[in-house]
Design a protein around this nucleic acid. Structure first.
Lengths: 226, 226
DNA sequence: GTAAAGAAACCTTAAATAACGTTAATGAAA
DNA sequence: TTTCATTAACGTTATTTAAGGTTTCTTTAC
């Protein structure tokens, strides 16, 4: 499967050049020319990497990045910038998983950084933190086990997958769409209540521990506090 | 515990400058002036991050990096280089988890990239719990809870976001437009009364405490006094 | 300057819509 | 035949929209 890159750029000629180069390298490029469209595309297509020009009409690249981060804390974001002041860079680096490339840039450098981040995030097996501590529970996604103080719960596959995603995004926001993508694989399930049923089960498992909370952010997603 | 950085640099003056800057930022810096010593230090001290000059007497930075990678596939390696040819960069990026900074560089940029990689690899520290005291209430935006003397109110997401903005700007002025941007995200809602409805709710929550006031500045915004 | 009229801007309540929760039943797979 | 995943049906809550009222600011005539 091709890796998707969301590219926001308002300069037409540069935009086409970069898009062509990325596509030549086997990426699927979603190119838009403003921040609002970019955010909408992100929500819809969940790209593997974001490439944002900073100077944009309307919302600037940083603002879009913040809103993307609210949905996904892990996706790499690379900024394209003419700015050189270090103070500006702070903003770009703030959320981690970010990088920037200074304009004018060599296409090769951009491609290398793109590939580098994709390798870091998706290539080299993520340091499979195989066990999670959730309050007084221990969660082993591999064995599909949730071990409490007394009892030990054998989770089903979907329960495990869901809890795994929640743990990956614990204490921050994870969107409904992202969960559906990760656990059920985009196309299906989108108009059913399946996810809710599983959310309900996860909540039941943790209902005795008041420190663990799975909060609904209506229209956005969930926050798993633990 | 301080995070350790292994730094290989043969230029004495630059080396000292960078070392000082890193130490000033709270890092423990292991500085050596050639590749062989660098590799030995790596094995012995297992630093959290490597900072390698490329042009070195004897073994160059790339070679050291390859040998380090053979020992540890995950440790971030940042190259300092005067080279600008893209072909050279390929080598630097090959192993993933690598970055490079072009000489001459701003110290701020270097520090930002160092911190960025440490964050990516060793965990983005959990978002600090920003709790607010509002009169006799305690407000926890993370848990979406407003705790009064007797009762505890579970706030909705939008209520939480709004109150959060108000708290950030307590006792000063915050404009309507800013709130709409932060909570609803510019594009929508601008001609609706949604915000007013939520302002109304916030007021109701605090109506018993006469010390807390949410004042309207018509045409400007609000002032949250508490 | 001041009062009245007009226009914005905001408040309040209720109703409508959308999004999510819950339980049980169904169907598929092991 | 037991477990798991999905669907159905209905319940609940959050958010937005609608509609009419109130307040504040501005304009204009005196």
């Amino acid at each position: 499967m091709k890796q998707r890159i969301l590219y926001i750029e308002d300069e037409l000629i540069l935009g086409q050049l970069v898009k062509d180069a990325l596509e030549k390298h086997g990426f699927e490029v979603l190119k838009v020319i403003n921040g609002s469209d970019g955010l909408a595309m992100f929500k819809k297509y969940r790209p593997h990497l974001c490439l944002f020009d900073i100077m944009l009409p309307g919302k600037d690249g940083y603002t879009v990045a913040e809103q993307v981060r609210a949905i996904d804390v892990h996706v790499p974001i690379i900024f394209l910038t003419a700015k050189v002041q270090a103070t500006d860079l702070v903003q770009g680096f703030k959320a981690g998983c970010n990088d920037y490339v200074r304009k004018p840039f060599h296409m090769e450098e951009l491609l290398l950084r793109v590939e580098n981040w994709l390798a870091v995030k998706y290539g080299i097996e993520t340091p499979q933190q195989n066990n999670y501590i959730i309050g007084i529970f221990a969660f082993d996604p591999h064995k599909q086990l949730l071990s409490g103080k007394e009892r030990q719960i054998r989770l089903s596959h979907k329960e495990t997958e869901l809890l795994n995603v929640l743990c990956n995004y614990k204490n921050t926001i994870v969107s409904r769409d992202y969960i559906l993508q990760k656990v059920w694989g985009s196309d299906s399930v989108y108009n059913s209540r399946t996810l809710d049923v599983y959310i309900n089960r996860i909540r039941k498992y943790f209902k005795d521990d008041s420190h663990i909370n799975l909060i609904t952010l209506k229209g956005i997603g969930y926050r798993f506090i633990c």
